[in-house]
Write a protein that binds this DNA or RNA. Structure first.
Lengths: 154, 154
DNA sequence: ACTGAAACACACTTGTG
DNA sequence: CACAAGTGTGTTTCAGT
């Protein structure tokens, strides 16, 4: 599962354009199309590349509101319990356990402020959750495709 | 730029598998391959779909550490100024202006704790930035592909 | 072990109805 | 939007380094 420089360049190409043809990638990294395919197959088998996805503008689909919610839980709440409490809410697009006062940080997307309020109320109704602290996103300054992934290390 | 149900189903398919063939999508939504292609072309032209990207496991590429940093700025710092201050740091994968005390929330990825510390020091050296408050991610509970995008509204 | 080249099958793309 | 033709790409096989 060790990656060489060619692998990293191929991944970088696929982060920029997930639908690039193997021949096109090969031109940029100096390999033939079959060689690129074999490496991509290997990277997928090793779960370095876990999939491919369209990058979508949420606002264009009617999701105009987003927020980050610090979630505070009762004393002995495990990460699994937190997962159970938040993953069933479709508005939750990401969730992390974090250091600091809060138990978790939850990234939520909603269609509008009213929808956000509903989702928040639903979250607060979870038995494990004792309090929440919401920061509404005013504007997205940066959102690299590598938000869900990563590019080549320095 | 109004989307019908077919468009939303096509987008949903491409969020799950960004390399799905048009014929495969067509089978699932009840359209021929050319019809799907024309809609995808239109969705891209309208910037509903802004691109395609591989979904990568950051840990597999050596990025094992991530954090969310609340950034506090001097009184009259515009979103553009904040953008200028954070976007040049390659560790920053996302940044938002938010409501609340902090000026911005910055999502950072680093290779390890030492690297994170370096990035943090570099950030704090920005003239606009007066203080930071860092929450290190202990574990990622949820990270839907729609983190950078969105699925179909309820 | 991994590569490049050729062959085949499949997907994309365009035009037409 | 479906259909059908032509083009290009994905995929496999094989031989070479």
């Amino acid at each position: 599962m060790r990656l060489d420089d060619l692998d990293r360049r191929i991944v970088a190409q696929l982060l920029e354009n997930g639908r690039a043809s193997y021949a096109q990638i090969g031109d940029r990294v100096g390999l033939s199309a079959p060689a690129v395919k074999r490496r991509v197959d290997r990277l997928r088998a090793e779960r370095v590349i876990t999939g491919f996805a369209a990058v979508v503008d949420p606002a264009a689909l009617g999701w105009t509101t987003e927020a980050f919610i610090e979630v505070f839980c009762t004393g002995a709440t495990s990460p699994e319990d937190i997962y159970d409490s938040v993953h069933k809410h479709p508005e939750v697009v990401a969730a992390y356990t974090i250091s600091g006062d809060a138990s978790a940080l939850v990234h939520v997307r909603a269609q509008d402020i009213q929808h956000l309020e509903q989702a928040l109320e639903r979250l607060r109704r979870e038995p494990n959750i004792t309090a929440t602290k919401t920061a509404i996103v005013l504007s997205r300054l940066i959102g690299r495709p590598t938000d869900t992934g990563a590019t080549t290390p320095a």
